[in-house]
């Protein structure tokens, strides 16, 4: 076989392999959307779920998913940011920092159900937080931290050292160089990383089943007292999210239209995660463009 021919075959094989990936994604998406989108209706998005009857909606679960996402990001972003800054700027190369990096890697490979059970024992039982949004957010923080730290660290180290030197040479302290030069320059990467992690959080179920709980008490969206059990702001109430809802319907749902609700909810979930991804790409590109072009 001539090298030219071998090259051609190799390219075609690789082309085919990438095609398979796209095909899997496309058929999955098509199936979920074709099955799910017809379930969309105003009631579906505005009514609470029904346990025994036909026609339940997903408003509470959808809201819970977003609220939990927001809380998780509020807790985990600062922690990940701090760790990433330390690792990329300050950390010396020694056995301790190697240990920290290894710990992060191990943490990122923990199965989410294990994180969920750990969260159950730690936050729900030990800290007596009960099945609550707070327990769920803390478990998701553990689930989310390693990858987020890694992405932020990567965006920070991607800033050329000439930028850092430029700042230091102007008489900026190390910390000023971090906050005023490196962080702003790394912002597109950081924002992309945070949004991508949002997609992972939004779709996570296993880590939440035993932490945020599997029930969605009725919410009164006019009640702004964060201590009240019906208030959407309350972080101590159990809160079934959309992903958990899908799991629940399929494992023990009693409503006659369970498969339809599940299909609709899956479509919403997929669309949300998809839009997070697209948003991440769009924002990342846009900020990058703003920063680099004249």
């Amino acid at each position: 076989m001539t090298p030219k021919k071998a090259d051609k075959i190799a390219v075609n094989v690789l082309y085919g392999l990438s095609g398979i990936i796209v095909l899997i994604l496309a058929s999955l998406l098509t199936y979920i959307l074709v099955r799910g989108v017809p379930q969309f209706s105003i009631e579906f998005f505005t009514q609470p779920a029904k346990t025994f009857e036909v026609g339940g909606g997903i408003i509470i679960q959808l809201y819970n998913s977003f609220y939990l996402l927001l809380l998780t990001l509020l807790i985990s972003t600062p922690v990940a940011m701090g760790a990433a800054i330390y690792l990329s700027v300050y950390a010396p190369q020694n056995s301790f920092t190697t240990f920290v990096r290894t710990a992060i890697e191990v943490l990122s490979s923990l199965p989410s159900i294990v994180v969920g059970l750990f969260g159950f024992l730690m936050f729900v039982v030990q800290f007596k937080l009960g099945f609550s949004i707070l327990s769920g957010a803390l478990a998701l923080m553990i689930f989310n931290l390693p990858l987020l730290t890694r992405t932020i660290e990567d965006s920070l180290t991607a800033i050329p050292s000439s930028q850092r030197e430029g700042g230091l040479a102007l008489g900026l302290s190390k910390w000023e160089t971090v906050t005023r030069i490196i962080l702003p320059a790394a912002m597109p990467g950081i924002i992309t990383g945070v949004i991508l992690s949002a997609g992972r959080i939004f779709g996570e179920a296993a880590a939440l089943i035993y932490t945020a709980g599997q029930s969605a008490p009725a919410l009164d969206f006019t009640n702004w007292n964060p201590m009240s059990i019906t208030s959407p702001l309350n972080i101590m109430r159990p809160a079934e999210t959309l992903a958990v809802h899908i799991w629940k319907i399929n494992s023990e749902g009693l409503m006659p239209d369970g498969p339809d609700v599940s299909a609709g909810a899956s479509a919403v979930l997929i669309l949300a995660v998809l839009s997070f991804n697209l948003l991440a790409r769009y924002l990342g590109k846009k900020i990058q463009k703003k920063i680099t072009s004249a």
Partner: peptide, 30 residues
């Protein structure tokens, strides 16, 4: 303070990803 009195220009130009104005105003602002 040493580096405030002793400025430095590098081998490859390393402007900050900001406007021309902000690049110059950077040091004084800090």
């Amino acid at each position: 303070s040493l580096r405030t009195e002793v400025g430095m220009v590098f081998q490859k130009p390393n402007p900050f990803p900001k406007s021309i104005y902000d690049n110059i105003a950077y040091g004084p602002r800090i």
